[in-house]
């Protein structure tokens, strides 16, 4: 696929600890060996694979270190090809997964729709999905959990929702907007008699997808 998608493209490693000579006090790995210059082979390789090239003046000038690093060149070249290899098709796999998922649908509670004469119900998971979408229409708000419970003997329903919200505006303000949107959707899209919408903001919403600069895999997850 031609898409430049940060989720799917493996990047060359560019993170993690970069133990150089300073890490020499860490016990060596089993099978490690010291080069004639005194450096451990494992550390020289780590440095070469993890860090930007030529950051350590010793490695650049030391013939033993250079030779050790060059020893990995063939493996690295073959690895690059392996990395660029097209993985098997996601489309078919995703289709089969979703078929099983839909067959194992989790309905949740069955809630009464607002009709006093007929026996009409809607699955909690379906109603929750619609109400979450209503919450998501408020800029800077994204719904997390959404639970619905019947109240009393009639068709009244109470909604409890948690939100991730951007911090650029007062939270009560945003929660109010979400509540209004949820009430409206419950009446307009579903026909549920919602009596109350309890909202708790549980996390800060960061921009998504995260902006990544330079190499390295994107950071996943936007809330705490």
């Amino acid at each position: 696929m031609a898409l430049d998608d940060p989720h799917t493209r493996p990047e060359p490693p560019g993170d993690g600890p970069r133990p150089g000579p300073a890490a020499a006090d860490v016990p060596p790995f089993a099978g490690d060996e010291a080069l004639p210059c005194g450096r451990l082979l494992s550390r020289v390789w780590e440095q070469a694979q993890d860090a930007a090239p030529a950051t350590d003046p010793h490695t650049v000038s030391c013939p033993y270190c250079r030779e050790a690093v060059e020893g990995l060149a063939t493996v690295n070249a073959a690895t690059r090809v392996l990395r660029a290899e097209d993985p098997p098709g996601l489309h078919a796999v995703a289709g089969r997964v979703m078929e099983v998922v839909r067959a194992e649908v989790r309905l949740g509670l069955l809630l009464p729709l607002a009709d006093s004469d007929r026996d009409l119900r809607i699955a909690e998971s379906t109603a929750a999905k619609v109400l979450r979408q209503a919450a998501d229409t408020v800029p800077g708000a994204r719904a997390a959990t959404c639970r619905l419970v019947p109240e009393g003997d009639g068709s009244d329903v109470r909604v409890t929702m948690t939100l991730a919200a951007a911090l650029d505006r007062p939270l009560p303000d945003r929660a109010h907007q979400v509540r209004r949107s949820v009430f409206h959707s419950a009446g307009q899209d579903l026909g549920l008699a919602v009596t109350a919408v309890d909202i708790t903001v549980v996390g800060a919403l960061e921009p998504w997808p995260p902006l990544t600069v330079g190499p390295g895999l994107p950071t996943h997850g936007g809330t705490q």
């Binding site: 989720h7 799917t8 493996p10 993985p87 996601l90 796999v93 995703a94 997964v97 979703m98 998922v101 839909r102 649908v105 989790r106 309905l107 949740g108 699955a123 909690e124 998971s125 929750a128 999905k129 979450r132 994204r142 719904a143 997390a144 959990t145 959404c146 639970r147 991730a164 996390g203 919403l205 960061e206 998504w208 996943h220 997850g221 936007g222 809330t223």
Partner: peptide, 27 residues
């Protein structure tokens, strides 16, 4: 974000799960 999608999927939202499958399937 992933975390919210996972919360939604845990409550039975298949479409949120479909996004997670699309997002992580290739690697």
């Amino acid at each position: 974000p992933d975390r919210l999608l996972a919360v939604r999927a845990a409550e039975g939202d298949e479409d949120s799960f479909a996004v997670l499958v699309q997002r992580h399937g290739r690697p």
